[in-house]
Write a protein that binds this DNA or RNA. Sequence first.
DNA 1: GATGAGCGG
Length: 290
Amino acid sequence: MALDAGRPHKLRWGELDEDDGGDLDFLLPPRVVLGPDENGIKKTIEYRFDDEGNKVKVTTTTLVRKLARARLSKRALERRSWPKFGDAAREDVSSRLTMVSTEEILLERPRAPGSKAEETKAAGDPLAAIGKAGAVLMVCRTCGKKGDHWTSKCPYKDLAPQTDGFIDRPAAAETAASSGPSKGTYVPPGLRPGAERSGTEMRRRNDENSVRVTNLSEDTREPDLHELFRPFGPVTRVYVAVDQKTGASRGFGFVNFVNREDAERAINKLNGYGYDNLILRVEWATPRPN
DNA sequence: GATGAGCGG
């Protein structure tokens, strides 16, 4: 760069170590750092080519320690006068007091297959051997059965009302009911003292109050469906099937109601209803398999 | 004519 025959230009930082001339730097002696000495004076000696291509020596003097000293505690200052020990006593470490650790540190993932935690568990628990793929972790919170199904798939999940033995009625709720609110324990509104308990109808899962809507126009989205069905009663879920790739509506969707009666009224009212130039079909959805 | 995605303690 500096030796360019053409007009020299100032080197910008982005050009340093680039291949447009910077590679001549290897011809220069290495940079030398001296100190800091007892007065905190650090000297840096380096060489570079000037604009005319001449080798020049550049000496930089910096005051290091005086600045730092102002912030050092008495105790720290005292430590500085200690004789060197350990590695520092054996080496010249004036310019490298910090070292890179070569110690190998293994990070352990608690549930990684083959990890220690996993092996110990598998050895102790016979059930763990059966469901290595994580099935053992599958303990139904409704019926307590292990390794068979998730809570959401429990064959008893629709059974109502649930008995005290079941897990999803926290023991804390009973305590709260008898002795007032206990600190730090959330009690869902339905389990609070004085909450209405209207037996089977209330506790019933509403999965089957699912209404299928077909012949939707391309640009009907979930909010539109919600607007359309909301007047009939509380809606728990609105879904419009979309093509995963294109994002375009597939022209059908589902609406779930809290109450079956509302769903029924919606079907009766909206089936055959003209919406967005199309005639809607609204009917009971057959529950999704699985 | 057409029947959804995702998530695990």
